[in-house]
Design a protein around this nucleic acid. Structure first.
Lengths: 113, 113
DNA sequence: CCAGTTCGCAACTCACGGGTTGCAGGTGAA
DNA sequence: TTCACCTGCAACCCGTGAGTTGCGAACTGG
């Protein structure tokens, strides 16, 4: 469990950037219809190309999917990988809690100071 | 909910690096006694100073705590902020699911629950 | 006291990723 | 058809952060 699984790793790498986090939330807020890069760029102060790059990173991590509608490329949220990353986070915390419990038990019969 | 809360943001920024993820897991695996930077560096192929920097980043995010024991500086896992990040991840997925549910309801009114 | 660790600070290098700009190619609508 | 719009590709700039190295200070044990 030392190293997170590949899927979770990719998600955490992708979400390591603040712009990407906000972008992911925006795509999610766009609902099932999704959002285009130009739409997202209009509401922000960065160029469309920068948004496209971020969306490609999110897509590589499996967090967004792209579909061509007419001449538009609409991105929609793909929430499944989020669960993997979340699971790893909680697993680290859970392992810690388990260790604490074992420690408490072992020290209970040997009072130190 | 568009922007993740500051605490979760800091955690995700810190965990955006693979070395830091592995380091966090190692510190967690060290248990309540914690681990020193030199110990962690001995098992890895990077310098002690690099490890120290990573631990400082993790500490800034509240993910590890430092305590001086003799002349050693031992780092231990601080699992609380992990929950914040995990909560944000699941909240994004949950918001998506809610939107899907509302969409399904509005498109087909006669669907049984 | 002296030697051996171990830590912390600071300066430095360097690759990488976020961002921009320019341009060509399709595609929908008038 | 023609025009306007949206997209994709490529080249480029530049800041930042990951990593190294060197050194002085502080603590520990013989």
């Amino acid at each position: 469990m030392a190293a997170p699984p590949a899927r979770a790793s990719a998600v955490l790498d992708a979400l390591g950037d603040a712009t990407r986090r906000e972008l992911l939330a925006a795509v999610g807020a766009a609902g099932a219809e999704g959002a285009t890069a130009t739409e997202l760029a209009a509401e922000r102060s960065i160029s469309r190309q920068a948004i496209v790059k971020h969306l490609q990173v999110l897509a590589a991590a499996g967090l967004v999917g792209a579909a061509k509608v007419g001449r538009e490329q609409r991105y929609r949220l793909e929430p499944a990988p989020l669960a993997d990353a979340s699971a790893w986070l909680t697993s680290v915390g859970a392992a810690w809690d388990r260790r604490l419990a074992r420690l408490a038990e072992s020290t209970s019969r040997r009072t130190a100071p």
